[in-house]
Nucleic acid binder design. Structure first.
Length: 639
RNA sequence: GCCCUUGUAGCUCAGCUGGUAGAGCAAUUGAUUUGUAAUCAAUAGGUCCGCGGUUCGAAUCCGUGCGGGGGCACCA
């Protein structure tokens, strides 16, 4: 005679054992119709799970994340069922729920094509229409292994073998024959899945996520509670595609890639101007924050990389170059060894600390070909790198300085939504635990002082010290990991860095690695997507285009453009033989922030008529006023 | 690196089951001199990614290499 406590605190008494369906029915008719899954004392259960004792129960519908998750999970199962019906001999492996949907990994000789996806989708629909019932059974371990082996599902048998012996093995039947090993819970019947799903893509995936294993075929699907949500999701994807920096970079003539050098950027004039603006902006900021900018060689003797430990640990990702004298040099994948060399010049005292060395250093890393992705993952990129040499006591304050600098810069570029990821000591590491204690505590203190949200990634720090990563959220809700601070207790010692302390003894400094954007290339990719190519005025690659209304006003337009350039704003004149409408369309599509129209009116009053991007409003302004106003705007962020 | 997919004019893309290429935009030339998102017309433009094979004949079929895309793995 269980008493069921509901989330609102109300109790329901039952005279006999009861399941979720019956509880839902008792609460309301509509809930019984919409109920998908329940939690019993916090544990998710199938609705037909029989409750014998007093407990608290919560019933979930598709409005709850728990309900949606089960819809997706059932969709994955029904997809596997459809696949096995259509393509006998295909083995199933795993099929979890992921963000926005689900996938299932299959083993089959022939590749699934996009036509197959349509067929599978259709079969899924049919199974859903039949509204077949779900049934849960608990099997004996040995029986389960031999059963799955017998029916040729060797992956399933392997999974069962890896499940701890004390765990219950549940088998879910969808209909009378198709069944799968699964932890559950699942919907009562296939009809509850609804039709708001779509198979999106097929790809390869390693068995158990290990590249040493064979490759399976993964079919991805997206699944939602309603058709409306599905459509919204597909729309979001479409919007993201429109912002793709590779597409916009080509359209806006910012950069290109070519096969002679995969993963490296050919910056065009406009893209490079954007690049330079960001660097100049950061120079001003860093100068104010007490950094000293240096420049170190791109190519350094292999011996140095051996000493620093890079050769052994990251050698596979390094480009090398052999000179005619048979020496091997490595093209730098990081700037740190070079910066330590700079630090090592001359005797350093505690009075020199903290010493902040920065460099816009171009590094090369041989990334696996499959990892390359536009500007977001390249083989040669420019780091806004710095290394801060300091004493242990200075770790917290220096980390805090860096954090403030990073947040300030992100804000100027339009990113205000930032979270931190703090990672502490990994299993394999160098250095004394006492030093780690101190480094971790100092860094964590700095993290807390920011008052930003942070997550702790246990054991994910670098082998040489703990780290913080800065994750920013863009205009369409995507997260990008950009800046980082890493406390290094290892490298300075390896490369013989030292300073003379107050007491006259030599000490090894702590080194903080830090990057603001991380990679300029990558950050520009993020900026393009965040702004959909419509950059804020001050970083816009081409800020103004002057358009004379007819040939008669070309001279005036040229004069205006020249004046604009004089105050540091970029400008071009459009002398093409096209009409005004054509030119406005042309430059609007090119995302020029300001179009300046010049005709008789403007010549007579020594003015310009401004048309801002995405605005039909026209504003006439004396040229003098325009120059003053916009040159101030242009410099605003540099102060 | 692995699986799938893809590579045609400057750009976006057609080109069915093999018969040596086409559109729109851009470019060039001419006419139009334009007041806020495409004026009209003409012209020119291609090792159909490279290499090899099948075939009387290959952009098309097969093999291979390189590049791109989607994932997986990787991301110090």
């Amino acid at each position: 005679m269980p008493t069921i406590t509901l989330p609102d605190g109300k109790n329901l008494n039952f005279s006999k054992d009861v399941n979720g369906l019956e509880i839902a029915k008792k609460i309301s008719k509509s809930l019984s119709k919409h109920a998908l899954v329940m939690s019993v004392d916090g544990e998710l259960k199938d609705l037909y799970f029989t409750i014998k004792n007093d407990c608290s129960v919560k019933i979930f519908t598709s409005k709850d994340p728990e309900g949606l998750e089960v819809i997706r999970h059932d969709a994955a199962h029904i997809m596997a069922m459809a696949v096995q019906e259509l393509y006998p001999g295909t083995q199933v492996t795993i099929g979890p729920v992921i963000e926005n949907g689900f996938y299932y990994d299959f083993s089959r000789k022939e590749a699934f094509t996009s036509d197959d996806l349509i067929k599978i989708e259709k079969r899924m629909s049919e199974i859903i229409d039949k509204d077949i019932k779900t049934k849960r059974e608990v099997w004996d371990r040995e029986k389960a292994i031999s059963h799955f082996n017998k029916i040729g599902e060797k992956y399933k048998a392997e999974i069962i073998e890896s499940i701890p012996k004390n765990e219950e093995l549940s088998i879910y039947y969808h209909g009378d024959t198709w069944h799968d090993l699964c932890r559950g819970p699942h919907l009562v019947s296939s009809g509850k899945i609804g039709k708001a799903f779509k198979l999106t893509k097929v790809s390869g995936a390693y068995w158990r996520g290990d590249s040493k294993n064979e490759m399976l075929q993964r079919i991805y699907g997206t699944g939602w509670a309603s058709q409306k949500e599905l459509e919204e999701y597909l729309k979001r994807i479409e919007e993201a595609e429109k912002r793709d920096h590779r597409k916009l970079g080509k359209e806006m003539d910012l950069f290109h890639f070519r096969e002679e050098s995969p993963g490296t950027v050919f910056w065009h004039e406009k893209g490079w101007s954007l690049f330079q603006k960001l660097i100049n902006y950061m120079r001003a900021k860093q100068d104010a924050a007490g950094y000293k900018e240096v420049n170190t060689p791109e190519v350094l003797d292999r011996l140095l990389w051996e000493k620093s430990g890079h050769w052994e640990k990251y050698g596979e990702n390094m480009y090398t170059s052999q000179t005619p004298d048979e020496k091997v040099f490595a093209i730098k994948p990081m700037n740190c060894p070079g910066h330590i060399q700079v630090f090592n010049q001359g005797l350093k005292s505690y009075r020199d600390l903290p010493l902040r060395i920065t460099e816009f250093g171009k590094v090369h890393r041989y990334e696996p070909s499959g990892a390359l992705h536009g500007l977001l993952r390249v083989r040669a990129f420019t780091q806004d790198d710095a290394h801060i040499f300091c004493s242990e006591d200075q770790i917290t304050s220096e980390c805090l300085n860096v954090t403030n600098l990073i947040l300030d810069i992100y804000k100027d570029l339009g990113f205000e939504n930032v979270i931190l990821k703090y990672a502490d000591r990994p299993e394999i590491r160098v250095g004394d635990d006492k030093v780690w204690d101190k480094a971790e505590a100092s860094l964590l203190e700095a993290v807390k002082a920011t008052k930003l949200k942070y997550t702790i990634n246990k054991g994910e720090g670098a082998f040489y010290g703990p780290k913080v990563e800065f994750v920013l959220r863009d205009a369409i809700g995507r997260d990008w990991q950009c800046g980082t601070i890493q406390v290094d207790l290892n490298l300075p010692g390896r490369l013989n860095a030292s300073y003379v302390d107050k007491d006259g003894t030599k000490k090894v400094p702590v080194m903080l690695h830090r990057a603001l954007f991380g990679s300029l290339e990558r950050f520009i990719g993020i900026l393009i997507e965040n702004y959909a190519g419509k950059f804020p005025f001050w970083i816009s690659p081409l800020q103004t285009v002057v358009i004379p209304i007819s040939e008669d006003f070309e001279e005036y337009a040229l004069k205006v453009s020249k004046e604009i350039k004089k105050v540091g704003i970029s400008s071009e004149v459009d002398l093409k033989k096209h009409n005004l409408n054509y030119k406005i369309r042309d430059h609007s599509l090119a995302k020029i922030p300001l179009l300046l129209i010049c005709g008789k009116k403007e010549v007579d009053s020594n003015s310009v008529t401004i048309r801002k991007l995405d605005s039909k409003k026209q504003e006439n302004m004396e040229l003098k006023t325009f120059l003053k106003k916009y040159s101030a705007l242009n410099k605003a962020s540099l102060n």
